[in-house]
Amino acid sequence: MTTQRFRHLAVALLGVTVLPLGLVACGNDSSDGADPSTTAGDPGSTASAPKVTDAWARPGTAGGNTAVYMTITGGAEATKLVKVELPSGTASSVELHETSVSGSGSSTTMKMDEGSEMGGMDQGSGAGSSMSGGMMGMKAVDAIEVPADGTVELKPGGYHVMVMDLQKDLTAGESLPVTLTFEPGGTVEVTATVREP
């Protein structure tokens, strides 16, 4: 899955909640504007409540680390993702992390292929340069900003939920309940599918 595809898929998922229709969006629409119809006429949500789609977790083995990814779409008000929790007994700790390039390890000119899966984010900073060929590292972040009506993707090579010291195996096909805390916005519960990217 490439950035483009991921983004298109995310757009498809956001814009059209019926998955198969995503094909249409994917195939012929390169506009990044999410369909506003998904957010319109939804009196149940508070203005600041973000929406979370396409949550998935990478498979992992007990004792190892893994990551959870998702797409977050802001509501009318900017918010921040400040905390992520998994069911007790899943992992020793869970943190928000960002993968980014630190320094330039090589003077060789990098040539990136189209549609790269990893790296660059539409929002935020840092990860956009993930493909410059320097050394890559991760750092913990206190929060992930979600702009009003904007979209933030947590995806390989950028922001991710780092899951440390798994207490049990996470196997493809499993479901993983994830509780996200936004300030403002409160908590949002989602189910991440454990799958390979």
Partner: peptide, 24 residues
């Protein structure tokens, strides 16, 4: 909540996602 899309049976969802990507 768009998460509701997760109420599609997981395996089907996965297949659909794969299909979407492949078709993409």
């Amino acid at each position: 909540q768009d998460v509701k899309s997760a109420s599609i049976p997981r395996r089907v969802a996965t297949v659909v996602v794969v299909a979407v990507l492949t078709a993409g």
